[in-house]
Design a binder for these strands. Structure first.
Length: 365
DNA sequence: TCCCAGTTTCCTGTTT
DNA sequence: GAAACAGGAAACTGGG
């Protein structure tokens, strides 16, 4: 039916030569007179009770006119090299084919951009692009999050493949795929590459965390000096403070995400908020660690550092007090606050509180 | 080469 | 007493 509408009705009633308002009128006339059945099939009322006119269908049909997902050339290219057609085709494959979203809910025309532009979009920018006046905001946000995640999974995979080609003997955090993280035994799947997006430089630390306690080359005392006396042999290996020497320099990569950005990303991600971290007072940027060790573990996972603890992580957080990126919240334990120089943490749904319609239609969440 | 920002580790002391 | 917090110190990295 959709195909029929796209190929016939749309072409007939929505001539490209006509100005948009006229075409919308035509479509409404068409809908009222003849095509209620079609309209009902495109937007089943039980799923979209808020849809009361044909404009939604109209706008999306318009989108289809501009959009021809015929190409699959994106499959053999890196995101960076996609042209606008390939970007749109990938969006279709990702959102519709793979994740089963309704094709009429995706404003494809907003995604007629190059892969280079797409990969530089932030999560909220993707959300903005996905928003459409005639599509439910929560639905758009859900699609956008899916698209964003899949995009960064793909980018991660591209980097991983390049990394394997360049350093086949080395294992980096990028070996963590999008469906589970090697060595991470938790219910949480930190597959949101936004959390890792710019963390490529983190793999410079990979050697850091591979120091074996028995390694003669690493027999440093706690004061950082070499020592080989009996006491040190008895004591378990104690890593000296700071980053050990010997990290291999590689290609220049973007600087890692900072601790405040990492926290912000967790708080804006439904998979982590409110299960392990949540907003205490979103208007003030206050948040609470629900499972501080899990957050630290995620940070360590991202940094390829199995030794990360909340104690160390919180020290990194406290470092940001001095620049007012974070501010302390006295008296409240495990509660911190973004400062005036902190990252943008705006969201219209802190802690992902279910809206009424979602509660009434749990199958749609 | 130097400096700075950011991070990690260790540590001591304080507060809850 | 344990956990959380605060912050100094040192060592390191990447970037300007």
């Amino acid at each position: 039916m959709i195909e029929y509408a796209r190929q016939n009705m749309c072409d007939f009633y929505l001539s490209p030569a006509q100005p948009a308002p006229a075409r919308l009128d035509d479509f409404n006339v068409f809908k009222k007179g003849n095509a209620t059945f079609t309209y009902g099939n495109l937007y089943p009322y039980e799923m979209y009770p808020e849809v009361e006119d044909a404009s939604n269908v109209y706008y999306n049909l318009i989108n289809f006119r501009d959009y021809r997902p015929e190409t699959d050339s994106w499959k053999s290219k890196v995101v960076e090299d996609w042209n606008s057609d390939e970007t749109v085709a990938w969006i279709y494959d990702c959102a519709i084919t793979t994740h089963g979203f309704n094709e009429l809910d995706v404003p494809f025309h907003n995604f007629r951009i190059s892969g280079h532009e797409l990969k530089n979009k932030r999560r909220e920018e993707i959300v903005d692009m996905m928003l459409h006046p005639h599509v439910d905001n929560e639905m758009s946000r859900r699609i956008a999050y899916t698209v964003f995640d899949r995009l960064h999974c793909r980018l991660s995979e591209e980097i991983r493949q390049q990394s394997v080609l360049r350093y086949p003997e080395q294992q980096t955090f990028l070996d963590l795929d999008c469906h589970g993280n090697r060595g991470y035994h938790s219910d949480y799947k930190p597959n949101d590459i936004s959390l890792m997006s710019a963390a490529d430089s983190g793999d410079d630390h990979e050697d850091v965390f591979r120091i074996e306690p028995a390694s003669p080359a690493c027999s440093y005392g706690s004061d950082g000096s070499k020592s080989g006396d009996e006491d040190d042999k008895k004591k378990p290996f104690k890593r000296p403070p700071g980053r050990p020497k010997g990290s291999i320099k590689k290609d220049k990569r973007p600087r890692s995400v900072s601790v405040p950005q990492f926290l912000r990303d967790l708080l804006l991600d439904e998979r982590f908020c409110p299960s392990i971290i949540k907003w205490e007072d979103h208007s003030q940027g206050k948040f609470r660690f629900v499972k501080p060790d899990e957050v630290a573990k995620l940070w360590g996972q991202m940094k390829q550092n199995d030794n990360m603890t909340f104690e160390k992580f919180s020290r990194a957080m406290r470092y940001h007090y001095q620049h007012m990126v974070l501010v302390s919240v006295p008296t409240a334990r495990l509660v911190y606050q973004f400062g005036p120089k902190g990252p943008d943490f705006k969201t219209n749904n802190p802690n992902f509180v279910k809206v009424k319609s979602e509660l009434e239609n749990p199958s749609y969440s």
